[in-house]
Each structure stands twice: as C-alpha cells, then as structure tokens.
Design a protein around this nucleic acid. Structure first.
Lengths: 126, 126
DNA sequence: CTACTTTCGCGACTGAGTTGCATTAACAAT
DNA sequence: ATTGTTAATGCAACTCAGTCGCGAAAGTAG
C-alpha cells in the first residue's frame, strides 16, 4: 500500500508525469521540484507511486534510476516488459510500445525483463 | 588504447575472469583482491580492459556495474548484444548466448542494446 | 644501468540514495 | 468546526559506489 494521503507533494509529482509522457530521472525530478519539496520526499513519493503501480522504474545507461508513467501501468499488471529508449544526444528517455520476444532460457526461470536501447531519437536523428 | 603494461595487478584481475566464465560486480572484485591492490586500481584496470575489448560491462539490477569476459569479446567487435541473466536468489550473473531480435524502431537509430533478465538460475530453480 | 612514462596507492572528495527523528498536515470521527 | 490519530514531510547526518590529484613505485626501451 503506497499512497494513502493525497498531499500537495504527491499531486505535484504526479502532474509532472501527466504533462509529458516521458521518463524522468530522479535527479531531474528533484531539480524540477527543488523549491517545493525536499529530495527525501521525492524519493519516498516515487517509491509509493511505484508500489501502487502508478508509475514504474528502471535503470538508465547512466546508472541513475528513472521513472515513467505509461498507459499500461497498474497495480495488478506490474510486469512492464516494454523496452526503453535513451537518446545519446538529448538524453531523453521514452517508453517504447514495441513487443520484444524473449526466448525461454534452458533451465532458467525468467521473472523480469529489462531492455534499454540507446541511440538517437526522432528529433536528434533528423 | 587501454592496457599498455602487463603489471601484476592486471594479471591478477584477468585471472579471476579466466577462471570462471561468470560476471562479477566491481564491488565483488574489489572484495576479492582487497589485500592485493587498491580499489582505485581495480576501477582503472577494468576501464582499460574494457577499452581494449578484453572484457565488457553492463549495469546490474542492483545499479552496480558488472564486468565479464566472454568468448565474443574483442577490441573490434565491441557491440555485445547478448543478454545477461541475474539470479534473484544467489545473485550470480551469467552471459547468455541467446540471440534476441530487436525490431527496428520507427524514426530511431539504435546503437546499443542492453538486456537484463532476472529470475532463478539453473542451480537455484532446481 | 639509466631515463622515461605508465601505473599504483593513498586520501580526500563527489553525488545518489538512505535513515532517524522531530514536526507538520491529511483525514476520519466526533 | 474541533480534535485525535498517524501518514507524510523536512532536515541533518550518514552510507557507499565511484572519481580525482598527486607523489611514489614499477614497467619498458635503449
């Protein structure tokens, strides 16, 4: 059970994700809201939102943790198999709706799949 | 050009990768060689070995950097498209030789592909 | 052996993420 | 609306991976 109270901070963070359908690194988020709330609060809100399946997280190429909200997100259907794309020029990260098939691995049980593609996005490759 | 001199430290690190064909996190490596060399040295050797294509690196689920030496590694053919598998029980990481096909993404140029699978390995799922 | 240059060790530092605790603010019940 | 409960926040101190600068040590070529 993540979010129980709808505080101003929670609303602020959620708005950021709803405005644009793109992923944000925690560092980036903290920077955006730095005069509205403490960094600890940002970390905690993100944790709770993720527990509730409202947003999902993954690790960027830079080693930082990134968060995004996408249509498929929900508390029940938490297995996000969609790949992420990080642009090496503008550094933006998008969720891709492409389906990538993972062959079953002999003698292994696969629980989760993290796929991160890097390259140039639509804007930067033009 | 990474490695220029074959020092004792370099040899020690290389031996670890040659003994077992499994990936090691930097933290783990530092622990293993902690009374033979300094942690800064370990970081620097790994950087150089990677530049030369002798080993390759990727980010684990834990956010740590992992390194591995595998057959396909070479300075020229540096694009390692093979997936990695991290066991959620014993925490070991293996390089998989499975080929995973990434569909081309519209209006995007894909340079690299990082795939990390998590689950239970052969030993732990038995 | 000597001279040159890479590599190493050490200590201090950076920056992401965490923790403990006192304070504040949601929310439910009265 | 007031009160009581407890989740949520702010703050400061902390942890830990990874980096940096610099003087000392060890490779390597001649």
């Amino acid at each position: 059970m993540g979010i129980i109270r709808k505080t101003k901070s929670v609303t602020t963070v959620l708005q950021i994700f709803e405005e644009k359908q793109e992923a944000k690194s925690v560092v980036n988020l903290i920077e955006i809201v730095k005069d509205k709330m403490n960094k600890t609060t940002v970390y905690r809100i993100l944790d709770r939102l993720e527990q509730d399946g409202i947003i999902h997280s993954f690790n960027g190429k830079d080693g930082l943790k990134w968060y995004a909200k996408c249509k498929g997100c929900s508390a029940s259907h938490h297995s996000d198999k969609h790949p992420h794309f990080q642009c090496t020029e503008c550094n933006k990260v998008e969720c891709l709706s492409v389906e990538i098939k993972i062959p079953s691995i002999k003698n292994h049980i696969v629980d989760s799949t993290d796929i991160l593609l890097t390259g140039q996005c639509e804007v930067c490759s033009a």
